[in-house]
Computed example of a mutant assay.
Amino acid sequence: MALRIRSILKCGQLINENIKFFPRSIVTSNLRSNTVAETEKSTETQPPPTDAEKAVSGSVEIETLNKKVVELEEKNNDLMDKYKRALADGENMRQRLTKQIADAKIFGVQSFCKDLLDVADVLSKATETVPKEEINEKNPHLKGLYEGLVMTEAQLKTVFRRYGLEPVNPVNEKFDPNYHEALFQQEVEGKEAGIVVVVSKIGYKLHDRVLRPALVGVSK
């Protein structure tokens, strides 16, 4: 009995020693072989995609591409719209600035001309108050003064015309509220309603812009 037990223990020791010294490469090779076999087996078990599945996959890809194309077109349209708006705004600003510069050149003397209107009124009043019958060789001083006033008034009107300043004297013209200011109304025989019959003070305009409206009386 003791001999049998000893034989069994010896056999076990031999098995352990064989396992301990078993080449590792053989074990690794076996493991790799098993893994490749399992992979090939799993691949072989999966069926290839059908035509319907390929069509569905292709349609999904086409739909995705179409969505991207639509998004890009929308972005492009939005950018083009902003670009056109920016160009239009720039052009409008350029035109406004050009007009402002032109108006500044034309109407820059507006305040100065308006101040000179009082001088023109005084000269006109002075020439009107001089008695015409007294202007003769017997009164050389009065004649010289009158001629000097007339020449000064004529020169001033020439300067006014040079800068676009024109008088508005609308006698017997239709009343225009844009250029005239009515002080009174009166009945005048032979005149239709709305006709300027009296000009109390002439007006002036600077390049079609009213600098001072004419003070008038209108028929009714």
Rank of each mutant, 00 (worst) to 15 (best):
G144N: 10
G90R: 14
S25K: 15
V69L: 14
K201N: 14
A102T: 10
K125S: 15
L87G: 11
Q95A: 10
E17Q: 15
K125R: 11
R162G: 12
L142N: 02
L116D: 03
P47F: 00
A37H: 06
N136D: 15
E91C: 04
L79S: 04
L142K: 07
N136T: 13
E61W: 03
F175V: 04
K191P: 00
A37E: 13
F112Y: 08
L117C: 10
T64R: 15
T50I: 02
E40P: 00
Q13P: 01
F184W: 08
Q13S: 13
A52S: 07
L65M: 07
A182P: 11
I135N: 02
S219W: 13
A37P: 00
V69I: 15
F184K: 03
E187F: 15
E44W: 00
T50C: 07
G190N: 13
S57L: 07
E73L: 12
I62L: 08
A37I: 05
S29K: 14
I135P: 03
L3S: 08
P48R: 02
D121T: 13
V27P: 06
E53V: 01
T45Q: 05
T43I: 11
E61D: 08
N77I: 07
C11F: 02
G108Y: 06
N34R: 09
P47I: 01
M1C: 08
E166D: 02
H180W: 05
A214V: 11
K105P: 02
P23R: 12
Q110H: 13
D81V: 03
V188R: 09
S7A: 14
V56S: 12
E192Q: 08
V159R: 03
V218N: 09
R94S: 08
P49Y: 00
A88I: 01
I106Q: 09
V130S: 01
L149C: 06
N169P: 00
C113S: 12
N16E: 09
L156I: 10
S111Y: 07
D89R: 15
L165Q: 04
R4V: 15
K132I: 07
P49N: 02
G190K: 12
E133G: 11
I26K: 13
Q46W: 00
Y204C: 12
T28A: 05
I8E: 13
Q186G: 04
R85A: 08
N76A: 15
G90P: 00
V171H: 10
S42L: 07
I195C: 01
A120N: 11
K54S: 04
E181M: 07
L9I: 09
Y146T: 03
V168A: 06
Y179M: 08
S33M: 06
E133T: 08
R6Q: 09
L79I: 14
